[in-house]
Every structure is written in structure tokens, then in C-alpha cells.
Design a binder for these strands. Structure first.
Length: 1023
RNA sequence: GCCGGUGUGGCGAAAUGGCAGACGCACAGGACUUAAAAUCCUGGGACCGUAAAAAGUCGUGUGGGUUCAAAUCCCACCACCGGCACCA
């Protein structure tokens, strides 16, 4: 970096203004009911000095949120400030525009690295965490962001996680009511089910509870004991204990949520993950699947982000169908999205973990007579299947998810020896187990329709099972499929190789049905064939129509029903870690000796983790907390839960804590929550003005966080979890908006200079501290935004920093007297370091700056800049806003006289982007300060530039009298004519036709048509 | 495989139906300077052409279409990036 002389003394300016902002608390955001100190620029701007305004008296709120960082040991990387700069620019812009802006920062500080360091060194993770936070905070502060640090949160602070535990208790103490479609306190259910209910009036009107009560009374024959009720209620809580197989990561010594497992490996560290049945805490996020999906409509997120969430939730509509089992009274329920292909179901597959298999192993079901066409290989031995089934299940259980997905491209499975009966034609169909059917999705069982499902087709080919076509493909598809067969095998399918067969409708169809195994599964839309019995026919019906008809028929016969399934699974919420929030849960034994769990009272919060000297799991695989036996065992004989919550817990609600960060009596006060989340009257205009306004208002939606910026890495995990918690809190009446984040923007990744992702191993990591010391914070901020659109992936280029740095140098020289710069530089070399800050006063205003009345051209330049910057900021187009500032400066550099008013307005525009230099120049361009007060630390602070009203552009000043109008002939530019802006169409046309150049191109041709777009262009179409 | 996004000079990019390449980087030439740095000025898509210009032709991943007019809208394809991936 061959930068010699500094463009301007950012090294003095930046610390000076950062200290000033801190002293003045310039960016403190005020809650309703807080007294505004006299002299604060926000109070002065809004005429609220010394007042204690209510929500209605405060200006409208604007909540601009960053995804708070995990304070890693490596410190800030250049990706962090990208989002932070964008939100800071917006925050400063909105403040200038008159909003009460909430712009906070905090630390997502629980996490694995601090714990692993603790295991290695014995140092308490708190120490590591505190040191890392200090580094992050120093780095972030050196960038001059306008955060309200009085609202800083730290998820590992007991004052914070007290409320994380409190919210967990709310989850624990709630159930999801399907009739009301919301969470309800579980106390209501407990009361409804108790022997002598007390709150009858409250639950009597509730369908669900009445049904539950009736059901339980019947089962218990009227005799309810507390144990039975407790056990039942435990299964309904939003936070519950499950024994299901979980993702166990031996390397990390903990279980992981589905979301944390990628390609069978842990998201953190990339270690293998295996399935293992364990007792774990789960959160019932699946109850919210439909709302999490539907409410995406009401929020302003990018299309791709919504799509990712939709994908993850994975809603699919279909039907459940019950199949009778031959020689048994039991039935097997399958889930299918294609009930219209039921006539083509030729076998059935259960997941290896399906519960019926245990029964069959204990009590084999045999058929008196093998169905016709049963392959000999199955008939051979009545016992053989059971051996095969046992060993197959064992194999499947041993396989990690990685092996199941990556290595088993080839289908595998075994015949169980059992047959089911296809309810539409009463044919016995063999039942297999295979690991391509997942226990955790749908019913863990499928009807296989090989002709119309690719996976079933593959399986059927491998095991030579019948493939029965029941949907007629278009002729064109048959021809294409036959060609693909030829390309694959070198053999042709007779009669399909060329053009669509003429006699398709008759003989061809039959031939296709006979040779379908040579084709491939046809999964597209077609019409039904060979799908009828004495009661129902789907023949000639389209897929959608057939689905409706067969589902209705199944329902009528009591054989099935319409169902919706989700890929989303309940959230595995416990970890075997030390550095996380302990569960406020104890385990007790009932009279019969059975363990049950119970919540601690709210008064017991925060529940602190015990002090340990070893952070490893115990030798028998218990979580580290189990080492603290005197912490675990309580005097009354109960035992504490030793799992801790996952890192996601703290980040699920931090944006709410910011609203009222110091509140010791509640996680947030009602008043602060309503004001900042925009549920109060004062914010209503915001709803009306937004793109989603009408829709949102109809749904009763208030905006929530106005803008949330962060990386895509949180597209499913954090954002789904936080939305879920928010909805629970909404249902229970603790927050007033159904969605937390109204507008969300993902910043694009910043790549290394080589266009690769930045990484230590590549050696292409850019350290923000280096850039800061070389070019200063303002240049760094500008560059981060000037690189390209916020949401795009873009490579870093340090040369580009020099460009924006030069721009700031130009700004500096526009304002500052050159002679005084020389004096300043000389004084710097002789002055001692401590006094260097005062030298800034040596710098004088450029003599070209005066109170002269600005010329029309100068005003036009200014107002064009105001317009562009304002519009671009509203559209988050920071790069083009900066280029507009550059255009202004390039122009203003040529002005012999520089009107003070024009330059002041420019500084207000510059301030959000480069706040330090803007403040420094502002303090100079204001004119001389009153002498004598300068040395006084306690003087009323300077009014901050940050609260100067944002300038409005005057459209009248931008009007051009003479326009340059391009003239095209046949769409090609041939001339540019100058003409009065208000020229009529006829005048424009005449002027265009009069052009010599245009005439040249029209010579010898006839005019077909002349298009005249006033103020834009003329296009002459000729032969 | 499915879903989403992107594709424009040497590079980051701008223009979302109306003069393609604003702004910036890098580069080249010039001014200032003993010299360098810094600063200021000038130049620039490609091709063809010319002493230099002018004029001209082509040009926004590829191929087609709509339109007086397309980077922009429509259809098909290709490449890259991101997500999901046996979810029945």
C-alpha cells in the first residue's frame, strides 16, 4: 500500500468524534416515560428538552437491527461491518429524517469455542468470553457506529439468561390448542382434566379441552388420578421430553438439532453424526408449522429467503390411507401425495424402525396360500424373512445418516413375509422394509407405486416387483423416454423410437403398459387409466381431479383422509454442554418410583450453572453439569436437569431485550414493547405506507423490527426459531406482533481479493484493523458500501478502498484552507502526542467558502444529489448513493465560490456514510465558536450533525429548460438535438426531421412511422 | 435431481422498455516537482478506419420471439453461486 501522505487527519478526527458521541450519549434512544436531559441533540431537535414524553409525544420509532455477533477469538472480519455499516447509515439517515431510532448491539456469547478452550486450559468460559467481547467492542466502536450502548445485551449474563429461562418456562407451561390455533397456558388443561375443575367457565367453551376431558374420562372410567393427568399433560407441553432417536455427535459429545446437521455431519466442525435414541428436551415447533409458513406472506423478506423457509417447513398435501394386513386385524397407515395412483400400488414399504415390525418378529404372520405370481425366492422359507429383517434392521440402525444418504444410492431392503391388501382392488401386496423410507416423516410407511414414483421404480426394478401403469403419459413423453432408454442401454424400445406413434390411443397404450419397466417412472400430469373398481373409477380423470375423487371415496369408506405433512421436525432443544443456559427443571420420583419432571418457580431464576474445575462430560457420558453433584442433588431429594439449552436460545429473543434492556422486573415492559414494535397508534402510519401495508393491516399485523440485516447462514435456523418463540409469546400476550422482523435483508458474502471465500488457510483474510489504521473508519465504511449492492456476493479489493479514501480527501480539500493544512502538518511534527488533538483547530475553512447566494447551477447540483441520495437510501442502494456524493464533489471542486448553505446540506447527506469527517467539517463550517468555552469539558455539547434535519430536494430546481433529445432512425441513434423542454410533439418531430444527419439516413426511404416521446426521444421508422 | 439467484469493459459496477458502461479501481498520456509521492488535467467497450480525427459496423452468457425501440419483457438453452436433497 503505497500511500504516502495522509489525505486528511482521520487519525485525529475519528477518536475525537467517537469520544464526543460517547460523552454526549448522542445516539441514546429514548423509551416512552424516560426523562430527556436538557442539551441532548435528540431532545433539542424534537423540542422535548427536559420533558418526559409518552409514546404519543415521542417521534415515530424506527427499529434497525443487526444480527448480533458471536464474539469469537479471531475478532471482527470484514463481513461483520458490511451489515453493520448498512444499518448504521440507515439509522443515521432515519434520525436525521426525524425518527426515534433504536439501533442496538450485543453479544451472542454462549458457544462451543469458549467451552472447548475451557476443557483444554481449565479457564472458565466466562473469562474467554469477556476477553473476546472486549475485542469485538473495541473494534466495533472504532468504526463509529451509532449504537445505543446503554442497551447492550450479553446472552451469557445471568441478568439476560434469567429471561431466556423464563421464556422456556412459558413454553414448558403451555400447550398448543388446535381448535384455537394458538398456545394456551397448560394450567387451563390441568384444571380441565382435574377431578374437580375450578375454572370450568374458562375451558367449557373450548372444544379441544372438552374433547380431551371426555376422552380421558372414558379411558380412566371416571377415575382420574394426578399421576395419569400429569403424564398426559407432559405429552402436550410445547417443551417436552422425548426418547426418540437423535443426532448424536460423538466428537462434540452432544446431540444436535436437525438444522445443525449438514450432509450427516455437524455444522460446527464437520464431525460425523449418528442416530441414537436418547432422552431429550424438544420444543413443539411443528405445531406452528402452518403459521410459520402462512405468515411469510405478511413480511418483507427476499423471495429466496422465504423460499428457503418454505422449503425447510416442507408442507405437502396428500392423504393417509389405511391398508389391511393379511391374516391380521391390524392396519398399516401410509401417507401419500398421490392417492390418485392407488390402483398402481403394487407393494408397500415400511421404515426399518416401524413399530409393527417388532410385533411381526415376535408373532410371524403367514399366509395360508401365496398370492398368484409370488416369486419363488420369497416362498422358499417361512422363517427366512425374519432373519433377513432382523439383520437389515440392525444394519440400518448402525448406519449414520451420512452413510444412509451418501453411500446408499442403490436401493436396499428386505421382504417381511407379510402382505397388505390394497383397498381398491383387494389384491395382496408384499410389505418390505427399506431405509429409503424414513421413520420420522409421515407415518413411516408408504404405498409404493413404481410406475409413478422414481424411488419406488428403482426399488421395484431392483427387486423385480410388478410395475403397473395407472396414469397415461403424453405420447411425446413416451417417445422422449424411449430415446433416453436407447441412450442409456443402446437398445431401443420397439415402436417408440421415432415420431409419436400414430396408433397411440389403442394398441400403443397397451404395449406401453406391458413394457413400462423399460421406461422410467412417469411422475407428471396425465389422465387415469386402469383405475376403477365396481364403486369408483379414476379413468380419464386428470391428476388433481382424481385426487379429490379418490380421497372423498376413501373418507366415505373410512379408509383414509386428506392430510398435510411437514418436513419440519420438532426442535431438539437440549445439549450436553457446560456453556449454555441450564434448564430450570428438576426431576422427581412419584410414589411408584417413576421419574417425572417439574419446572422451577419463576422466583428461582436465574438458575446459574455450577462452578466446575473440569468442563468435560463425565466418564459415564453424562453432561458436564453432572460433575457438580451438590448442585445436581437438591435437599428434597429431587435432581436437577443437567442438559443445557442450545446456543440458539439466547438469540431467539434478544431483539426484544434491547427494547428495555435494564428492566429487572420483566423481559420487556409492555409500554416499551408496544412503542418499539410499532403496535401503538403512533406507528400506524408506517403500516399504511408500507408495501405490505394493506395486507398487514388486514391480518392485524404491526411491523415489528423495521429492518433486520444479517447473513444468509441464519436463513433457516435462527430466523425460524426466533419466529417460533415470538409467536408463542404473541399467543400468550407478551408481545403485540405476530412476526418479529418486518423487513429482512441478507448481506452478501465478501470474498477475498482472489475471488475465493476468505479463510485463514488461503491466506486471503483482510483484517479490518489494518484497513482502519491505513485509511480510517470513514473510508472503510464507504468502501464496504461502495463495493456493490448490499445483497450481492462481492470480492474485496483494497485498491478500491484507496478510491473512496481519495474521495474523502477531495471532500476535505473542498472545505479546508490549503495554507492552514501546511501549518497543521508542520505543527504536527513538533507537537507532542498528547496535544495533537488540539491541532485540528489550526485548520481553517477554505476561503472559497462564503455566504454568497448559490447559483442556479450550484443549487441544481446540490438538489440532484439530495434527490439521488434520499431515494437510494430508501431503496438500500448505498453504492449508487455514494456515487451521487462523488458526482457532487467532482462538480463542486470546480466552483470558484462555495456557498456555505450548499456545503452544509452536503455534509448532512455525507454524515450517514462518513460521520467523522462530516462532523469535523460541520463544526468548522458552522462558523467560529464562542471563545472561552472551548476548554470547558462541561460545556453544553455541540449540537450533533446527526440530528440536523435531512434536506428536501426542490424539484423545481432540477427542471431543465433545454433538453438534449436523441433522434433515432430505425432504432439506431443518429443525432442528438437540443430543444426546449416544453416543446410539443409536433415541434419535436419537426426538429428531428430537420436534422441533417437524420436526413442522410432517411435518404431515398419512406417514413413508415414516427414515434415521439416528449422529453425522451424521437424514433423514425423507415423502409 | 428440485428450488432460488446471478450472468454487462481489464476489474467492482450503473442503467428495469427510450443515448449501454454513471461512479470507482487498474491502465496510458500530460501538468506541477531537482525527483518521487500526493494533487490536477486528458483518454479509453470491441472492430474497421485515420497522421490524428470523423464516419461506419458490432456489442450486455447463447439461440429465438414481442416492440418503432430490449441489458431490461416472453420462450428455450448454457455457465456460475446459494439452498434443499430418498420428505413418499
Amino acid at each position: 500500500m503505497a500511500i504516502g501522505r495522509k489525505q486528511y487527519p482521520f487519525d485525529l478526527i475519528e477518536p475525537k468524534w467517537q469520544a464526543h458521541w460517547e460523552r454526549q450519549q448522542t445516539f441514546r434512544a429514548w423509551n416512552p416515560g424516560e426523562a430527556l436531559p436538557a442539551g441532548h441533540p435528540f431532545a433539542a431537535r424534537h423540542k422535548l428538552e427536559g420533558k418526559t414524553p409518552t409514546a404519543a409525544e415521542l417521534p415515530p420509532k424506527h427499529y434497525i437491527l443487526d444480527m448480533f455477533p458471536y464474539p469469537s477469538g479471531a475478532g471482527l472480519h470484514v463481513g461483520h461491518p458490511e451489515g453493520y455499516t448498512a444499518t448504521d447509515i440507515l439509522s443515521r439517515y432515519r434520525r436525521a429524517a426525524g425518527f426515534n431510532v433504536l439501533h442496538p448491539m450485543g453479544w451472542d456469547a454462549f458457544g462451543l469455542p469458549a467451552e472447548q478452550y475451557a476443557i483444554k486450559t481449565g479457564q472458565h468460559p466466562r473469562k474467554t468470553t469477556e476477553a473476546n467481547i472486549a475485542t469485538f467492542k473495541r473494534q466495533i466502536k472504532s468504526l463509529g457506529f451509532s449504537y445505543d450502548w446503554s442497551r447492550e445485551v450479553d446472552t451469557t449474563d445471568p441478568k439476560y439468561f434469567k429471561w431466556t429461562q423464563w421464556i422456556f418456562l412459558k413454553l414448558y407451561n403451555s400447550y398448543y390448542d388446535p381448535s384455537l390455533n394458538k398456545a394456551i397456558p397448560i394450567a387451563l388443561m390441568e384444571d380441565a382434566l382435574s377431578q374437580s375443575p375450578k375454572r370450568e367457565s374458562e375451558w367449557k367453551s373450548n372444544h379441544y379441552l372438552c374433547e380431551l376431558r371426555a376422552g380421558i374420562m372414558e379411558v380412566a372410567k371416571g377415575k382420574l388420578d394426578t399421576g395419569v393427568i400429569r403424564e398426559f399433560v407432559q405429552t402436550k407441553r410445547l417443551a417436552y421430553v422425548s426418547e426418540a432417536p437423535v443426532n448424536w455427535c460423538p466428537e462434540l459429545g452432544t446431540v444436535l438439532a436437525n438444522e445443525e446437521v449438514i450432509d450427516g455431519k455437524s455444522e460446527v466442525g464437520g464431525f460425523p453424526v449418528v442416530r441414537k435414541p436418547m432422552r431429550q428436551w424438544m420444543l413443539r415447533i411443528t405445531a406452528y408449522a402452518e403459521r410459520l409458513l402462512n405468515d411469510l406472506e405478511s413480511i418483507d423478506w427476499s423471495h429466496s429467503l422465504k423460499e428457503m423457509q418454505r422449503n425447510w417447513i416442507g408442507r405437502s398435501e396428500g392423504a393417509e390411507v389405511d391398508f389391511a394386513i393379511a391374516n391380521s386385524k391390524e392396519t398399516i397407515r401410509v401417507f401419500t401425495t398421490r392417492p390418485d395412483t392407488l390402483f398402481g400400488a403394487t407393494y408397500m414399504v415400511l421404515s426399518p424402525e416401524h413399530p409393527l415390525i417388532n410385533q411381526w418378529l415376535a408373532e410371524p404372520l403367514t399366509l395360508n396360500e401365496w398370492p398368484k405370481d409370488t416369486p419363488d425366492q420369497w416362498k422358499g422359507s417361512a422363517e427366512a424373512p425374519y432373519k433377513a429383517v432382523t439383520s437389515y434392521r440392525l444394519m440400518a440402525a448402525m448406519k449414520s445418516d451420512l452413510e444412509r444418504t451418501e453411500l446408499s444410492k442403490e436401493k436396499s431392503g428386505v421382504f417381511t413375509g407379510v402382505f397388505a391388501i390394497n383397498p381398491v382392488n383387494n389384491e395382496p401386496i408384499p410389505i418390505f422394509i427399506a431405509d429409503y423410507v424414513l421413520a420420522s416423516y409421515g407415518t413411516g410407511a408408504i404405498m409404493a407405486v413404481p410406475a409413478h414414483d422414481e424411488r419406488d421404480f428403482e426399488f421395484a426394478k431392483k427387486f423385480d416387483l410388478p410395475i403397473r401403469v395407472v396414469i397415461e403419459p403424453p405420447a411425446q413423453w413416451l417417445v422422449e423416454a424411449a430415446k433416453r432408454f436407447l441412450a442409456r442401454t443402446g437398445k431401443s424400445v420397439e415402436g417408440y423410437d421415432n415420431s409419436p406413434p400414430e396408433d397411440f390411443k389403442d394398441g400403443m397404450l397397451a404395449r406401453y403398459a406391458a413394457t413400462c419397466h423399460k421406461f422410467e417412472a412417469f411422475t407428471g400430469d396425465g389422465v387415469g387409466m386402469r383405475s376403477g373398481n365396481s364403486e369408483i373409477s379414476l379413468n380419464r380423470l386428470g391428476v388433481a381431479e382424481a385426487k379429490l375423487k379418490i380421497t372423498a371415496w376413501l373418507e366415505e369408506k373410512g379408509l383414509g383422509r386428506k392430510t398435510i405433512n411437514y418436513k419440519l421436525r420438532d426442535w431438539l432443544f437440549s445439549r450436553q454442554r457446560y456453556w449454555g443456559e441450564p434448564f430450570p427443571i428438576v426431576w422427581k420420583k412419584d410414589a411408584a418410583g417413576n421419574l417425572y419432571h417439574e419446572a422451577l418457580p419463576e422466583s428461582a431464576l436465574p438458575l446459574l450453572p455450577p462452578v466446575l474445575d473440569d468442563y468435560k462430560p463425565t466418564s459415564d457420558g453424562q453432561p458436564p453439569l453432572a460433575r457438580a453433584q451438590d448442585w445436581v442433588n437438591l435437599p428434597d431429594g429431587s435432581v436437577r436437569e443437567t442438559n443445557t439449552m442450545p446456543q440458539w436460545a439466547g438469540s431467539c429473543w434478544y431483539y426484544l431485550r434491547y427494547l428495555d434492556a435494564q428492566n429487572a422486573g420483566a423481559f420487556v415492559s409492555k409500554e416499551a414493547e408496544e412503542y418499539w414494535m410499532g403496535a401503538d397508534e403512533n406507528s400506524k402510519f408506517k403500516i399504511q405506507n408500507s408495501k405490505f401495508g394493506k395486507e398487514a393491516a388486514k391480518l392485524g399485523h404491526a411491523p415489528g423490527v423495521d429492518l433486520y440485516v444479517g447473513g444468509t447462514e441464519h436463513a433457516v435456523l435462527h430466523l425460524l426459531y426466533a419466529r417460533f418463540w415470538h409467536k408463542v409469546l404473541f399467543d400468550l400476550g407478551y408481545v403485540s406482533t405476530p412476526e418479529p422482523f418486518f423487513k429482512l435483508v441478507n448481506q452478501g458474502l465478501i470474498l477475498g481479493e482472489d475471488g475465493q471465500k476468505m479463510s485463514k488457510s488461503r491466506g486471503n483474510v483482510v483484517n479490518p484493523d489494518d484497513i482502519l489504521s491505513e485509511y480510517g473508519a470513514d473510508a472503510f465504511r464507504l468502501y464496504e458500501m461502495f463495493m456493490g449492492p448490499l445483497e450481492m456476493v462481492k470480492p474485496w479489493n483494497t485498491k478500491g478502498v484507496e478510491g473512496v479514501y481519495r474521495f474523502l480527501g477531495k471532500v476535505w480539500r473542498l472545505f479546508v484552507d490549503e495554507q492552514s493544512v501546511t501549518d497543521f502538518e508542520q505543527a504536527q511534527t513538533t507537537s507532542d502526542a498528547a496535544k495533537r488533538g488540539e491541532l485540528l483547530d489550526l485548520l481553517k475553512l477554505n476561503p472559497a467558502i462564503s455566504d454568497a447566494v448559490p447559483s442556479p447551477a450550484q443549487l441544481k447540483t446540490l438538489h440532484a444529489c439530495i434527490k439521488k441520495v434520499t431515494e437510494d437510501l430508501d431503496g438500500l442502494r448505498f453504492n449508487t448513493a455514494i456515487s451521487a456524493l462523488m458526482v457532487f464533489i467532482n462538480e463542486a471542486m470546480t466552483w470558484p465560490t462555495r456557498p456555505r448553505t450548499v456545503l452544509r446540506d452536503f455534509l448532512i447527506l455525507l454524515q450517514p456514510f462518513a460521520p467523522h469527517i462530516a462532523e469535523e467539517l460541520w463544526s468548522k463550517v458552522q462558523g467560529p465558536k464562542s471563545k472561552g468555552a472551548e476548554a470547558d469539558e462541561n460545556e453544553t455539547p455541540l449540537q450533533s450533525l446527526g440530528y440536523q434535519p435531512w434536506p428536501k430536494y426542490d424539484a423545481a430546481l432540477l427542471v431543465e429548460n433545454i433538453l438534449e433529445i436523441p433522434v433515432q432512425v430505425n432504432g439506431k441513434l443518429r443525432d442528438v438535438i437540443k430543444i426546449a423542454a416544453d416543446a410539443s410533439q409536433a415541434e419535436l418531430e419537426a426538429a428531428a426531421l430537420a436534422s441533417e444527419k437524420v436526413k442522410l439516413f432517411m435518404e431515398g426511404k419512406t417514413i413508415k412511422k414516427i414515434i415521439v416521446v416528449p422529453r425522451k426521444l424521437v424514433n423514425i421508422a423507415v423502409d
